[in-house]
Design a binder for these strands. Structure first.
Lengths: 350, 350
DNA sequence: GCTCGATCTGGAATCGATCCCAGGACGATC
DNA sequence: GATCGTCCTGGGATCGATTCCAGATCGAGC
């Protein structure tokens, strides 16, 4: 933004209207065309005139109407962001990364959250289309939304998860590799009954985490027990219940790999309720880091997806797509660090 | 939104353009005016014609251009939200509440975060002015923003904190009452050396919390020790350092009242590092709830500001302001619940 | 003095949707 | 059959900014 600092004078004309370029032009005694050229810097304007126009704009507190400009230029300088739930720190961090990067490029951010509802997701997408955003960054709930935006020629970047690899630009973390690494770590500590608590296995996210978990067993030459792959639901309450059943039953696992931070919270709460000590009685690893994982004792070992970086990368890719609309779709895969804390140990002797 | 579900047909005309109302009108063999009336529902249209136009719009995947509509009607259906830091769960929750409420009313949300920078704040405000948002909800950093937006005739609602009471519509929690209540609780448990760790005392937020803390002492007839009011800085690192000094010194407080969740985190970490047991060696109370406070053992007693409700209330007040622009400014004060957990107890015998 | 090119300016069209207004059609009423 | 009111439609102005284009001005070069 090269616009002058917000003026300290009046922002409305005597008539009480907001100042328009016509007001500026009249104040500087030039035509609207000339005023426009002076302010945008496109086209010829005599230096003295340019200065006069700028001063008039400053005095009037003129701020160009982005609506009118966008309408005329048929492009907008804002991007749409659509995430599942802002109260989940993963999505909030993601939005934060997008916000920082897009502001740097002079773009505003329209943010919407579907509360896990496919309808809300489509409605938000329609709003983005109506506002003619330059592009949309989203964590998709349905395959439809991407397809819908694509039909309207709006660049879409899927983040965190995708439905079909390669169908759309995407930025994801290497779920398989990270899942395999942490699972291998647990196996090497001597665990054999390692449960995977997971929310879904339909999107690439869940699928790849499951694949990573399995391939760790395969690589170690150990048998898989499908009864240890458990669906944990979508919120903390459900996850806690499932974890209680899992940990309270006979022949319970000695380690749990929770596929996201909500599930990890459920496991932690269930362990507390059942009086299981971490890591002595139970080892715990989480996919997704969360603030509380460093606050509890012991800290929870986690795959630390950098959600902020994910958001930043998505913005980068969005602008590449805008610049070359016809280049082939690309999936960027970020590797995730593993934050080793104290929540894993060798399984109890038992 | 009474718009039909996103169409399943093409969204662009044969020429590759997005469909406009002109395309719809031609497809339905009516004039643009009639098409507009049929779709908006304002003005006379014969039922058969309305149906024909709707079907044409559906077939073409027509989505009205919000820019053009807003320009013509001189109102926009989006609101601006400006918070300090999305990665702080308080602000994220706030944004979440605003998002939910404004979606319900058919408004889109433009979100920006100033990273604690007054410049970024003003820049975001200017973007909001350019986009002609219907109103702005913000947690102000400077008095200038509010004044700037006000000059442009944009309704502003300050949330969480304000500079001058009554100068602007605002939604805040009753900081004084809540601070007094928790402080009184600590005094009643027998604490005498109760420290207040605070970030600032310039805004109403900090001032009122300090006032509440003090009046608890006064009401109990106990003397104040100003050395126990300590500034804790703005981030976790700084807060931890300050808390270490406070708790590591001689004659340390037996209880700490942290004026926000970041400061509470600093105190918690410092206590861990110093090997102080909560609540046996140290009682802790926090203003602001945070997810980790229910995860640690013992849980941290906190003033549970409902940030989501704060955001929702702000949206409500914004629409009231839009409806009656000239009614007197109003400050809505929400009371905050206190979440009693296990982090307080009688002071050590010493 | 004339031409040419560069510099500079204003008029008018344009983006997409809305909405005022003039006017046509049609039925009812006297 | 004239008048009136209701229903319905299309033409054209409008919102605010940008941009194309025609034309004016001026200095340099011949």
């Amino acid at each position: 933004m090269e616009a002058a600092a917000p003026g300290t004078r009046g922002a409305v004309t005597a008539a009480g209207r907001r100042a328009t370029i016509k007001d500026v032009a009249e104040a500087a005694d030039v035509s609207r065309s000339t005023a426009s050229r002076a302010l945008t810097g496109r086209g010829y304007v005599a230096p003295a005139v340019r200065e006069r126009v700028r001063r008039a704009a400053q005095t009037l507190g003129y701020v160009p109407d982005a609506m009118a400009r966008n309408l005329r230029q048929q492009v907008s300088r804002s991007i749409g962001v659509l995430v599942s739930d802002l109260r989940n720190s993963f999505y909030a961090d993601l939005a934060s990364g997008v916000s920082a990067q897009s502001r740097r490029r002079g773009y505003a951010m329209m943010l919407a959250d579907d509360a896990g509802s496919v309808e809300a997701e489509l409605e938000a997408a329609e709003t983005f289309v109506a506002l003619r955003v330059a592009g949309v960054i989203l964590t998709p709930l349905s395959a439809e939304v991407t397809e819908y935006l694509g039909r309207h020629r709006i660049p879409v970047i899927e983040v965190d998860r995708q439905f079909a690899e390669g169908a759309c630009d995407a930025v994801v973390v290497d779920n398989k590799a990270a899942a395999e690494r942490v699972t291998t770590g647990l196996l090497q500590q001597g665990h054999r009954r390692v449960a995977l608590l997971i929310d879904e296995m339909d999107w690439t996210t869940g699928r790849d985490r499951l694949v990573g978990y399995r391939s760790a067993f395969l690589a170690a030459g150990l048998p898989l027990d499908d009864a240890l792959v458990v669906r944990g639901g979508w919120d903390v309450g459900a996850a806690t219940g499932v974890a209680r059943d899992l940990l309270g039953g006979p022949d319970r696992p000695t380690a749990v790999f929770a596929a996201n931070n909500v599930l990890a919270e459920g496991v932690w709460r269930a362990a507390q309720a059942l009086g299981l000590r971490v890591p002595d009685d139970l080892s715990l690893v989480s996919f997704d880091d969360a603030p509380w994982m460093t606050m509890v004792t012991p800290g929870v070992t986690a795959v630390a997806q950098d959600a902020v970086a994910l958001g930043e990368a998505a913005v980068g890719q969005m602008f590449e797509r805008i610049e070359s609309p016809d280049s082939p779709k690309r999936t960027v895969m970020l590797s995730a660090a593993i934050a080793q804390r104290g929540s894993t140990a060798a399984p109890p002797a038992a």
